[in-house]
């Protein structure tokens, strides 16, 4: 493999990791801070992609779809938290798994009713639809580069909110010691609601961003859900920075696994996960005492 091809493959890995991070960061927030296992995370990823398709079709603008899709997902998240998810806090994981699995079925059925069973494509915004010539016969879509940049910015925003704002402080306090935070008079319930909604919105955002380079199809969330859990467990549950590291690691493993070890590439990311968990049972950036 020559140096340019290696560079392109590296770019592929980073771009794949960037999208994985976006989706997994939502999962790790909800999982780490609310202690809720949300199996429906992948379903919201799918819903985001379908919203991107539908809003782009209606308005002709991908940017509107991006904003609108995230907004719809955020509102849906707030409603779901208010009606269902708040009943789950402190319950055992079985109850959470049952509810969120039920949500998958409901969301799938809603998707069926609203958008049907067809496979759809979404056009990227015109100013991002070109491509850059990398080698004599390979060009790289600008939109894929834009995803990298966008995900990087999203990551910075998430880190800023968690590390530098009041709501981030409450979130951190809550994930450290929920009871103590509550004793100190912090309105924890409202924060929970926003964290859950933000988690859902991040899943949808991932789906919206991937829609133009992927396709929009039923069941697209299933694979993403499993990968997101791998990333979350790998990086350390509840750690956004861990999700970033985990996502990058999975992106690299998957890309170079396909190139160098095609026959075992499907299990390679799980081998990596097992190896990392043997070395650090709570994940790369997880708290080891937990």
């Amino acid at each position: 493999m020559d140096l340019i091809t290696l560079g392109v493959q590296l770019l592929n890995a980073v771009q794949y990791g960037a999208v994985l991070f976006l989706v997994a960061s939502g999962l790790t927030l909800v999982f780490g801070i609310l202690g809720v296992i949300n199996l429906a995370h992948g379903a919201f990823y799918m819903l985001g992609a379908y919203l991107a398709y539908w809003i782009t079709l209606m308005t002709g603008s991908f940017v509107v779809a991006l904003l609108g899709g995230v907004l719809v997902a955020f509102i849906a998240g707030i409603l779901l938290e208010t009606v269902f998810v708040r009943l789950l806090y402190g319950r055992d994981h079985l109850a959470q798994v049952l509810l969120s699995f039920g949500l998958i079925l409901v969301i799938d059925e809603i998707r069926q009713l609203l958008f049907g069973k067809d496979v759809h494509a979404v056009a990227p915004p015109a100013w991002l639809s070109g491509s850059i010539q990398l080698t004599d016969n390979l060009s790289y879509p600008v939109y894929r580069l834009a995803i990298c940049v966008f995900c990087l910015m999203a990551a910075l925003v998430i880190f800023f909110v968690i590390a530098r704002t009041k709501i981030g402080m409450i979130v951190r306090a809550g994930s450290e010691n929920r009871e103590m935070a509550r004793v100190l008079g912090i309105k924890f319930d409202r924060v929970n609601r926003y964290v859950f909604a933000a988690g859902i919105a991040l899943a949808a955002l991932g789906g919206i961003l991937i829609a133009p380079i992927s396709t929009v199809f039923p069941g697209m969330g299933d694979g993403m859900l499993i990968l997101s859990f791998v990333v979350v467990v790998l990086g350390g549950i509840g750690s956004v920075a861990g999700a970033a590291v985990g996502a990058l690691l999975i992106g690299l493993t998957d890309t170079f696994g396909k190139v160098f070890f095609p026959s075992v590439s499907s299990i390679l990311i799980y081998v990596v996960m097992a190896a990392v968990l043997l070395w650090r049972p709570s994940g790369i950036l997880g708290r080891q005492d937990a």
Partner: peptide
């Protein structure tokens, strides 16, 4: 003879490889 695990849809790595194999 390139293969991707079923039903995965991340093809970018193999497409890069095709460009290299010409």
């Amino acid at each position: 003879d390139l293969t991707v695990p079923f039903p995965e849809v991340e093809f970018q790595a193999l497409i890069t490889q095709i460009a290299q194999l010409k």
